[in-house]
């Protein structure tokens, strides 16, 4: 499995907000266990999708100079669920940015239905930081691999995401 929990950015306004889509598919192995006979997108992976949307929004603001780490999820509420065939739209808004990191508010919608909303805080980490080695790379919101979403994740006609 590849750790991509968003498929494409559909809107991206630097330093302000980003919208990304995640298409839920029965081809995803875990949906057959979560739950047998009742496949729903796990909430934890929705948080990952939200974090990738918000983390890239924050990272892009500094031209990806810093590694962005998910530091804290002060609040998350699940209002309903998403099932195979749904397109989850994550909308991340930057609420605060400082040199140490940034905060975001993120919603997940399927159509007009609010599925989840969260606040997610990120911190910046630099490779020269003495604590760098102590942090598991799994905590990184994005690697250069994931950033490919910004390049290839465009509409089939090659158009740029809106808002840029």
């Amino acid at each position: 499995m590849r750790w991509f929990w968003i498929d494409r950015f559909t809107e991206f306004e630097s330093g302000k907000y980003a919208k990304a889509v995640k298409n839920v598919s029965l081809a995803e192995e875990h949906l057959h266990d979560h739950f047998p006979g009742f496949a729903i997108m796990p909430g934890s992976l929705m948080i990952e999708g939200m974090a990738q949307t918000g983390g890239i929004l924050l990272g892009e603001l500094n031209q990806f100079k810093h590694i962005v780490i998910l530091a804290k999820v002060p609040k998350v509420t699940f209002h309903s669920w998403a099932v195979p065939g749904d397109s989850i739209i994550y909308t991340a808004t930057l609420t605060n940015v400082g040199e140490e990191g940034g905060s975001t508010e993120i919603t997940a919608h399927v159509g007009d239905r609010l599925v989840a909303e969260a606040e997610i805080m990120f911190v910046h980490l630099d490779q020269k930081d003495p604590q760098f080695g102590a942090i598991d790379q799994k905590n990184f919101v994005f690697s250069m691999n994931l950033l490919g979403i910004l390049d290839v994740g465009q509409a089939g006609d090659g158009s740029e995401p809106a808002g840029e």
């Binding site: 530091a71 002060p74 400082g98 140490e100 990191g101 905060s103 805080m121 911190v123």
Partner: peptide
Amino acid sequence: SIDFLDIVFRLEKNFSIKIPR
């Protein structure tokens, strides 16, 4: 430790001020 940054961010927002690092 991570909460201190969260607190700073929230204070900045709630009081409309800037708090240097």
